[in-house]
Design a protein around this nucleic acid. Structure first.
Lengths: 137, 137
DNA sequence: CTTGACCTTGTAGTTAAGTACAGGGTTTAC
DNA sequence: GTAAACCCTGTACTTAACTACAAGGTCAAG
């Protein structure tokens, strides 16, 4: 099987070469075989694993969660339910973040609409709202 | 005018006492008058300013941006337009974050729906997607 | 006049996910 | 046979916004 250096797996999977080492130190990669001079020799498997990590990151999983996903992936006795639970938990979290941001968006849009953008700072409705907290709960 | 200690302004505005000192070091608070023994003596103005900061944070502004808002607030010659611009920029940024999160939500919801949650890990559609990146651009 | 709560300063640690060296060894291409 | 490009390790730095000391000084209550 063709073996790859760290820089090569990095390029092949679109992550930084130092990041590969970082992931290894965080336990996201299994021990990598070494040459007699200490060089790590990766296989295509690591490229796949780095792609897995990259895709999971894009879905909002953090490295701790990705580590869990990977260990489920690696364990043939793991249950599909565990994967589904992680996914649903992340979904719920993302939805909460969306709600929070939507709340901010509404207030910001309201403020931007309220402010003419003309005239001096005194009387600016945005500043006034920040000063006195109209919509405070 | 009644003067307040650091702990008192902190409690009155709902931020931590150390945070008050941190904000001062970051330039979000003006120089605070001191007693002869070195104690800072705050006034109600600082409570207002801390509330301003807290409210701006709730709208998604970071401290650097809040510092800009405060310096506009403090400058009688500042223009309302500058405040509006900061607000609109933040609005745009929040909207982008919402879009990004919505994309994640859609994929996660799709994956969660696709996975029965039953059976072994092999063949789990969530894991398979992470492995092979169905929806990669 | 003592005790305890508070204040002062400076500094260091926290979290997340990298990123950037320095100082050395190895491999590859010419 | 040498120079460039790469790899090794360990460590420190990065960003944001705090948070947590430690060692000492002060203030208010009783």
């Amino acid at each position: 099987m063709k073996s790859l250096t760290r820089g090569q797996v990095a390029r092949a999977s679109g992550v930084g070469a130092e990041t590969v080492r970082f992931y290894e130190s965080e336990g996201l990669l299994p021990p990598i075989p070494r040459s007699s001079s200490g060089y790590r020799y990766y296989t295509e498997d690591t490229v796949q694993r780095l792609n897995f990590i990259r895709r999971a990151k894009k879905l909002g999983f953090n490295l701790k969660e990705i580590k869990e996903l990977l260990s489920l992936h690696d364990n043939p006795h793991a249950s599909r339910a565990a994967v589904k639970t992680l996914t649903e938990t992340k979904l719920t979290e993302i939805e909460k973040r969306i709600v929070d941001l939507q709340r901010m968006r509404e207030v910001l849009a309201h403020l931007a609409a309220e402010c003419s953008g003309e005239g001096p700072i005194s009387g600016c409705p945005i500043i006034q709202t920040l000063e006195s907290g109209e919509s405070e709960e």
